[in-house]
Structures are given as structure tokens and as C-alpha cells.
Design a protein around this nucleic acid. Structure first.
Lengths: 370, 370
DNA sequence: CTGAAAGCGCTAACAA
DNA sequence: TTGTTAGCGCTTTCAG
């Protein structure tokens, strides 16, 4: 059935040798099914219009032989790998910091699910990865978390023509394909209003020394708010990637002569740190000190007292980012903008309510009800 | 310099067409540098013994052209992709549960770093991934977290001849290449002894209804210990993947008529849940109730009181697992066993010390000292 | 509607 | 030493 010695030279007497021993190739399947390799490819990928009988027969044979198409060959041929990079910022040698754990974990989890549902898988690639690692993996596109201004990785990826979607609006003129972010400014203003409504007279801020967009926007919003209401800013900064520095900064904030009667902490562990500091200074929460922190952790529902948190909705963000990226990869045109703002959520708990909801409280050790 | 029309037939008048527009191929580099593609390949990969001049010249030209080798082509040719799968258990549609966040995040973080240091990248692949996703990515090997007995994914991977290293000793006769785990039994026994030494008379357990190895081994160890010391087991189980169920189970445990005077919680959030439950019942920690939970979270250093935790050392595990896997991939022979046991660490804090370092404690409500 | 053949971009034998 | 060539396993025009 095959024209043997026409004008082929070397391929005479090895009719079916599979590449690696043990794994069946498409040729093996074709031979076993008595069809051509084209038919096998089409049958398995649902491409051509073959009779259903042929299709199912081929599928059956492939199954029986344990045939697995080679991802590398397909990628080489089609130019699509089905792989999406997930680029995380690094501090020192480690990808992402401890304070970002919950956020990152939630975000990555949602991103993984969303990607999977559309047939893609995620590759974790720290931004500072060795160059050879980046070029060793065929990516269809990349999600970048919080890219810095002029990020060399993003620039390079875009130059290669790969779609890049960022979590966090890109600083500077970074040419990303799309981005997803919260409205940090609005979130902070809202939250400060909430605290003021609960009776706060002097609101303090626990912020970071880092220059990432989140920290910068949030801090700026705080300063604007202070200016608007005529309050002197009261804040302490610390390197957010140092897990111990937070506790020290929290302590410093409450030790100030102009001690605030309410505090917002920008980072996840700030809640427990501030609570601990408050105990050290004999401050009751929420009676003497109102507390809010930005966190995705559920532990704050069970602390004493439960602490009000601002959620950035990392799951929404993870999902949105991946959808946008895959749309770009697959060439889906978007009518709307390629910028997406995800609303935040303020989860109000006892720590930010001067009048707690419970009615029956046996008089605590503080006799003063006002 | 190149012999043009010797005995080539079809390749006469297209000297340099690159595959995709915009990206330079190895041929373009060869042409631009005036050498053959082999020389380019060797120069860039540090393979052959070329003069340093040629090598640097080629590198320079490649750089200038913005040449990036095609990962797909290299993978197809060499059979190595530089990609390692990180398989996580799934609950519902989501990869890993909330209670495993801190553990997973730490473990994945360490694994990512370790892989990167050896030139590999990690691909997140939930165990329940669609089959087509698995076969769409060329993996050199896989890390499996807590594989279940007869795990079909592992079985399939091993059948394909891929090395598989598991975090958690494999249940049943799962043919993994290597595994890394803690000695959960010893850890629990140690911890119970610690509580008993602190004065616990009746130790309770907060455990899971799931059948994974960790839960099973830990629970069994607890039962053994109870038998040994002649204590009636006091425990509550709940589905660990449900974040709310833990609080309810903690409450149930402390509401029992045979209320324990010490509790060990197997899962991360148990500490805060138990603390909250203790407050509801007016139990002081550690005076009326000793508390320990298994957690990687630092929040327990700042709770009131700080809670003693058992750390499973996920970073050690993540690193070890990846090292073992890459060794297997690269054919490094191990003299030692391919089973590695990572020691746990009990971080003792106030919650498990009946005599806290502070000297002034008003007499607890239980007058009976014997 | 099916099959043969041409590569995708690279590496590793071999030939010069 | 450097260059030529044959594929890795698959998809995909293009003939039949």
C-alpha cells in the first residue's frame, strides 16, 4: 500500500520504529489502525470530516496502545504550548514575601482554576529567574504580578510579541496587553470614612517602605484624606518583606505621643501585630483603638476581638487576569477596555465599631461606658 | 564561504527566511555571524571546543539580533523540557484547600526556588486536571503532594517512565521514585508527652474526616498514645476543607461533658478556632486549657496568648522533594535511600505551658490539683 | 474523503 | 575545527 522505492533513498526498511522505546508514536497508531497518520491526527483532534466509524476506531486503537501525543512536537508545529507564565515578584532569593502569602495563594489558586478550565496550565516564574529558565519554556503569554516600572522581563516578553497581562496597573509606560487592579485610592478613602464614622478622631497608618504601586497609591490616598479632613498624618513605615519589622512598627505607632485612636494597616499581619501592641499599651479594641487591616486571611474572624479587614478580592483578580490573557492569546477581540477594576470589600467586624452589635455584655473590667 | 550550489536541490534561493516574522532563528544568526548553525548552537550552549573568539562573536551577533532559541524545538530534539509538574490535591474545583494555604505556599515557594536554582521551572497541575492538559505539557518529572492510594495520575506518569517524587509517603503500593515526609507518628507522640508534662490530664484531638495519610497517621498515633497512658480518647472530626466546620467542631469539642483540659488541633486554623471556643466557655488558656495546633502560620506568635505550634517544615520538604526529583531526572545515583524523613519542630509558646513564665497567676477555677 | 510529504527550529552524528 | 544532514513527532497543505 505504500509506494516503497520511488525516489526515497534512506527510508527503505524501517517501517515502524517508534521514537523512544515504550511510548507509542502517531505512526504506531496509524499502522495498528490501518490508516494514515493524517487520519489519526484528525480523528484524535476532531479536525477533518471522517466517518464516525473511522474516528472511534482510531481512538480505540490509540487508547489501547496508550498513545500520548508529544506536547513538544505539537508545540513546535502549532506554535502554541498551552502554557501561561505566572510571574511573581521576588524578595531576596524567594518568590513572593510572607506577607503576601494569603493574597498570592488565593490569586494563584483562582488563576490556576481559570486557566485549567480553558485548557491551559500555569508555570511559576519568579521575575528574577535566570534568563535561561525563561527562554527554556515556551509560553503563550504571561501574567505579571505587580510589575515595576520599566520591568525588563515584561519589556522583553512584549518585544517577543507575547501577550502580557498584569495584576496591578503597570507603573510608567509599561506596554502590557491588559491589566486588572483594584481602585486602591477609593478603597482607602472609603475605609477611612468608615473609621471616622465610627468615631475615630486621629487615624494612623501602618505602611511600607517599598515603592510598589499598591503601597504608593494607598499611602497617597491616606495623605489626601488627612489633608481633606484636616488631620495631621500619623504613620509608620517598615520594609514589608521583613516579618519581624511589622511588629516593631506597630509598637512604634502606638508608642507615639500623638497616638492615633484608629489604625489602618496595609499588610496582612498588621492586624495581629497591632492587636498585640494594643495589649501591651493596655488599649482596648475597639473602645480605645479602632483597627482595620488589609488581609485575605480568615483568622481575623476569630481573633479577640474580630478585626475588620479590607479584601482585595484576589480570586476575582486571578480569574480576570487569566481570562484576559487567554482571550488575547486566542485573539478574542474585546469591545470593552483592556483595563479591569475589581471592587474591594470591607468586611466589617467588631474592631472598627465603637458600639458593638451584641446587646448583652456583662460589664467588662472597664466601668466606663462612654 | 558557504558552498552554494553543490548538490542541494530545493533550497536554492531562500537563503534566510525565519520561521515567524520578527523572531530571529538560529539560521539567521548563523548567516549574520558568517558561520554554520552548528557553530551557533555549540557557541551558545557551550558545547564544542571552538575558539573563544568565535564563541563570543556568535554570542554577540545572537544578542544583537535578539535571538531566542525555541524551547519547543529544543525539547523535541533533546527530550528534556526543563519543566517539573507540581501536582496538588483538589477539593471541588479548586486546587488545595484553605487550611493548607500556609503549608502549601511555603512548600511551593521552596520548591520553586530549588527548581530554579537548577534551571527548572514548576508547572502547577491539579490532580484532577483534564486529561488533555496533562498530555499537553512536556514534563521531565513530577512532584505529587499527598497522593492517594492507587492515584491514577501517578500510575499513568510512572507508566510513561517519568520520575515521580511525592510529598508524603505514598499510600498503598504506589510506585513513586522517591518520597519525603515527616514522621507524623513521632511528632504527635512527642507533642502529647509535652502536653502531659505540662499537666494535661485529658487531651482532646481535633481531627479531620478525610482519609489522607497525614490525618490517618496522626489520629492513629493519638489513639495509641491514649491507650498507652490509659486515657479515653476525646476527639471531634470534621471535613478539613470546609473552613467553617472547624469552628463548629472546636466548639463541640469543648462543649462535651468529658471536656478535655488540653487539645491538639491537626489543622492550621484550629488554633484560633479553639481559642475562640475557649473564650465562649470562659476557659482561660493555658490555665484551664492547654492548646497546640499544627500550623506554619506566624499569627500564632501574636495571639493572646501565643499558641504552641507544630511545624512540618514545608520548606525543607519542598526543597528535598525537588532535589530528589531533579537527581532522578538527571540520572544522579543516590547511595542512600530514596526515602527522606524531615524532622518536625514544636514551637513552644504560652498556650502549652501550665506554669507560664510570669509569676503572678490568680488561682484558676479548678481547685483540685490531683 | 484519505494519504503522502513538507517542514516547525533545533541538536547531534557524521563528513569534509 | 567547521559545515552538512538527518531527523525529534507532530500538523497541515496539497494531491489523489
Amino acid at each position: 500500500m505504500t509506494a516503497a522505492g520511488k525516489h526515497q533513498v534512506s527510508r527503505t526498511e524501517t517501517p515502524r520504529r517508534s521514537g523512544r522505546p515504550g511510548r507509542a508514536g502517531i505512526r504506531d497508531v496509524a499502522a495498528a489502525a490501518g490508516v494514515s497518520i493524517t487520519t489519526v491526527s484528525d480523528a484524535l483532534n476532531g479536525k477533518g470530516r471522517l466517518p464516525d466509524a473511522t474516528r472511534s476506531h482510531v481512538r480505540e486503537v490509540a487508547e489501547r496502545l496508550g498513545y500520548r501525543p508529544s506536547a513538544a512536537a505539537r508545540t513546535l508545529r502549532t506554535g502554541k504550548s498551552g502554557l501561561i507564565g505566572l510571574t511573581v515578584t521576588t524578595y531576596g532569593d524567594e518568590p513572593f514575601t510572607f506577607t503576601e502569602f494569603a493574597y498570592f495563594a488565593e490569586m494563584a489558586r483562582a488563576a490556576t482554576s481559570a486557566a485549567l478550565a480553558r485548557g491551559y496550565a500555569l508555570v511559576i516564574l519568579p521575575a528574577t529567574s535566570r534568563h535561561d529558565v525563561w527562554s527554556n519554556v515556551a509560553l503563550d503569554g504571561t501574567v505579571v504580578i505587580d510589575p515595576s516600572d520599566q520591568d525588563p522581563v515584561v519589556t522583553e516578553l512584549v518585544r517577543q510579541g507575547l501577550p502580557v497581562v498584569s495584576d496591578g496597573r503597570p507603573a510608567g509606560a509599561l506596554p502590557v496587553t491588559a491589566w486588572v487592579d483594584n481602585d486602591h485610592r477609593a478603597a482607602v478613602l472609603d475605609l477611612l470614612d468608615h473609621l471616622a464614622a465610627a468615631g475615630a478622631r486621629r487615624i494612623g497608618l501602618l505602611t511600607g517602605t517599598t515603592t510598589d504601586t499598591y503601597t504608593r497609591l494607598s499611602t497617597t490616598a491616606y495623605l489626601h484624606w488627612c489633608e481633606r479632613v484636616g488631620q495631621d498624618p500619623v504613620y509608620e513605615s517598615y520594609p514589608a518583606h521583613d516579618p519581624c519589622a511589622g511588629a516593631v512598627a506597630a509598637d512604634r505607632l502606638l508608642a507615639r505621643p500623638d497616638r492615633p485612636d484608629a489604625v489602618y494597616g496595609l499588610f496582612d499581619p498588621n492586624g495581629t501585630d497591632l492587636l498585640a501592641a494594643a495589649r501591651r499599651y493596655g488599649l482596648r479594641v475597639p473602645e480605645d483603638l479602632l483597627l482595620v487591616c488589609c488581609s485575605e486571611s480568615t483568622v481575623y474572624a476569630a481573633t479577640e476581638p474580630p478585626i475588620t479587614t479590607l479584601s482585595l478580592k484576589p480570586r476575582h483578580i486571578g480569574t480576570a487576569v487569566v481570562q484576559l490573557l487567554i482571550d488575547a492569546i486566542e485573539g478574542v477581540e474585546h469591545d470593552g477596555p483592556v483595563e479591569q477594576v475589581i471592587p474591594t470589600e470591607l468586611i466589617v467586624r467588631t474592631s472598627s465599631q465603637r458600639r458593638p452589635p451584641r446587646t448583652t455584655v456583662s460589664a467588662p473590667r472597664s466601668p466606663s461606658r462612654d
